[in-house]
Amino acid sequence: MSSSDLTVSIENQEAFSDGVFQRNSTKDWDLSQFPEAEEIDLNSDNCTAIIKVAARSQHQHESYDLHRIANVSNRLAIRQIDPEIICFTILDHRLSQYPSARFGLSQNTKRGEHLSWLRLFEASEEASPKQDEITDVFKYLNGMISEKRLSDVDHLLFLLGNIRMSLELKAAILRFTYPKKDEFRAWNSAVDNIQDKIKSKGDNPKDLLFGLI
């Protein structure tokens, strides 16, 4: 299935049009236009968007009701991570409660919080992780890669800049995935993103990202 077979719709009480939510309308995205990711601002006071992902060829629809995250200002990332899987993720401080979901389009639709373990490591960017936390993150990544869930790891890297986690732990994730960086489309941009964040705090990125930049 190619990306041109897929559309993503967001329906909302106040639906999205030209960057502004308007009532009772629908915005469709043809993902072939957004091979990497589409990020959408959902700046609605009462955001109860329903996301529909449709595989045109299969007439398959799946809806996600986002009412769980109502009344917050969110950004939504939609991304086709491989020919058969679309991920969407809410990019905000509540990520740990609703990290991501994905649509499997060639088989029964799957959903789930594949990155829900991230909530265990929620911390401010300035926090210094304990040694055991770094080891545990390595073990989670280890599990994902051992189970061949490379697309999930790639999605994690895609999200890395936005999740609430210490910068040192984020750098450790980049470091652990370094040997497979060519297999992750989001690895380089994740490095750039973390580097920018470190710089914006006035720190030298060469400390945390030593050897990676």
Binding site: Q131, E168, A172, F176
Partner: peptide, 14 residues
């Protein structure tokens, strides 16, 4: 620096 070295410690543990 210390931060990358802490990753080394965790990798040794693995």
């Amino acid at each position: 620096p210390d931060a990358p070295l802490r990753a080394v410690v965790s990798f040794i543990e693995l």
